[in-house]
Design a protein around this nucleic acid. Sequence first.
RNA 1: GGCGUGGUGGCAGAAUGGUCAUGCAGCGGCCUGCAAAGCCGUCUAUGCCGGUUCGAUUCCGACCCACGCCU
Length: 313
Amino acid sequence: MRLPVLLLAGPTGAGKSAWAIGLAEAAPIEIVSVDSALVYRGLDIGTAKPSPAERARVPHHLVDICDPAESYSAGRFLADALGHIRAIHGRGRVPLLVGGTMLYFRALLRGLAQLPQASAERRRELDTRATREGWPALHAELARLDPEAALRISPNDAQRIQRALEVCYATGRPLSDLQRQTVSPLAGVRLQQWALVPGERERLHERLERRFYSMLARGFLDEVRSLHARGDLDAGLPALRAVGYRQLWSHLEGELSLEEATRRGIAATRQLAKRQLTWIRSERSLQWVDPDRAGAEASWNRDVVASLRELGL
RNA sequence: GGCGUGGUGGCAGAAUGGUCAUGCAGCGGCCUGCAAAGCCGUCUAUGCCGGUUCGAUUCCGACCCACGCCU
C-alpha cells in the first residue's frame, strides 16, 4: 500500500494549525510545517508558532530548525520536507504538510530546477553595482545573458534580477534554460490537498487585527527586543523581514512610534494574507474549505479520518 | 453674534480657468534557493447652492461644516 501525503494551505490566521493539530489527535499523523518563518528559533509569538505543549502532543517538523542569523530557502525546504515525508512514511504514518508559504508548496508540487544555491559574495557584488548603476542597468545586462528572463522580470525587481544574474554567472547558462525541466518530487504520490479560504475577507481582517494586538499583549515587543539585543542581527535578514518583526524592529531602531509600527504591522499582515490567497486561487488542485462555516472543521476532520481508515490507517 | 483660516478620494497631501499629482491603505495579479520577501497593475475626490466664463475644483457671493480668536 502506498501511504498518502496530506496538504493543508491557507492564509495567515485562517486556523490551519488548530485544524492540523486536531486531525493529528484523531489519526496517525505527523505535521510538517510549510512556513518560512516558523523555521526560525526565537520567533515565537509573532509567528503564532504552535506552543511547546502542542508540539509535545503532536510531532511538528521544520519548526525551530534555523538561527535567525541564517537564511533558510525554498531549496532547503524542499530537501528537508522530502526527507521528513520519507521518514514519516517509514514509520507507517501520514505526513500532513501545513502552512502558508505558497512558494514552498509549489516547490513540493511542481519541483524546483537544479540550480546553484545563493551566493552571498555574488549578491554583495551585485548589490554594490546596483547602488552605483541602478537595477535597470543590471536588468539590461540580464537581457543580454538571458533575454527570456529579462522579458518576464521587471527592471525594478531587484530580487529576481539578482537571482537570475547570479545563476547565469555561476553556471554560464541562462536561468530560463535551467528552469525548463522540473519534475514534481511528489509525482506518483497519493495526494490530498486542501486550502482554508475564509468566505469573508472582512472577517479575516478583523481577526488578524485582533490577533496582532493579542500578540503585543503577550510580549511580542519583548520578543523582538531580545532579538534586537543580540547585536548580531539586522533588518536585512529574512527572519527580521517577517511580518510584524520588521515593523517592531524598526520601532526599536527609533524609526517608528509603537502606534505606527502596529498600524503597519497589521497592514502587512493583511497584505500577506492577500498574497497567499492569490496564490491559492491560482493553484487549482487545492480543495477549498471555508473555515468560518459552522462545523467546517469537524466535518473536514471526520472526512479525512474516514478516508485514512479506508486505507487501513 | 463678529472676525479670521480652512473644507480635494478611506486617510495624508499637492496643483490648476480646459487632461485633478503623489504617498499610504484597499482591490486584482505575478512568482523556480531571501517568499511573512520582492514586483506589476488598479477604483473611489474638489462641502452645498448660485453667479461670472465658451469652460470653474480654481474667480465672485450666499449657505453649511471645522478650527482659532474676539464679544
